[in-house]
Amino acid sequence: MSECRRTFLKRAGCAALGAGSLPLLAAAGRSMAEIASQPAPAAKQWGLVVDLKKCRSASLRQACIEACHAAHNVPSMPEPRQKIEWIWSEPFGAVFGDQIHARTPDQRKTEPVLVLCNHCSQPACTKVCPTGATWKRAADGIVMMDMHRCIGCRYCMAACPYGARSFNWQDPRPYIANIRPDYPTRTKGVVEKCDFCAERLRTGGVPACVEAAASVAGGAGALTFGDLADPQSAVSQLLRQQDTICRRPSLGTGPSVFYIL
């Protein structure tokens, strides 16, 4: 009896394993083919230049953050460690830890800086994603997130040297004051971050933060958005004319967000 049962269990196990893995193999084959047929890289690279002086205005920073978070249904989590942020403000000393020294004036160290995803040219986060849920879009260089595919392993958060990624530790909906119905919220267990307002770029707009900054008094030119690959774009011209820095260039990630000192 035990003899028969063991043989039966063995065969059934092998059959189940075989039958179960077939669709997996087929799907894996399909997506491998997809990877192989990816279009040529970066025809364009969206980038942002932030003017630190103009961003000293608290109302300007507030306007940018609120516009972004309202546009994307970003929740305000009560627990600080569960905070979700696409764009936010950090002291200069924390953002540019490798640019300050013992004699840097406190005023500089504490100067607030707007930070967001850098949409790097060599992103550390997309490299580690095990499912391709985050990837660098070839057409315009945006580091995208596919919330439908993300398994919530948070490897990208460990890999990002800028702390630009947030995770939905719980269902975010109860913490969104005014849900904007034409933009999705997120579900618990997925990672999210700034995507340079891909939905606005698609219809010819500019990112919400850029628009909001320009609408504040004295905010013209605080945030300049454009194509880094185009030498005539406003961002390219600014980068030629001004002294700019970017975050942690020594890591080789190649940020697309720059700061005018």
């Binding site: 997996l24 799907a27 894996a28 997506s31 491998m32 490299k127 580690v128 994603c129 095990p130 499912t131 391709g132 849920a133 595919r149 993300c150 398994i151 919530g152 392993c153 948070r154 490897y155 995770f167 939905n168 579900t187 618990k188 267990g189 997925v190 990672v191």
Partner: peptide, 29 residues
């Protein structure tokens, strides 16, 4: 332990459905 750490455990098979050889996580699996 990796499974219980996932935010979206129901999607765990995505690792095999959308294989990403550039991720060490894929190789580890």
């Amino acid at each position: 332990f990796v499974f219980v750490d996932l935010g979206q455990p129901r999607r765990v098979l995505n690792v095999l459905l959308y294989p990403c050889p550039n991720s060490l996580m894929f190789w580890d699996v």
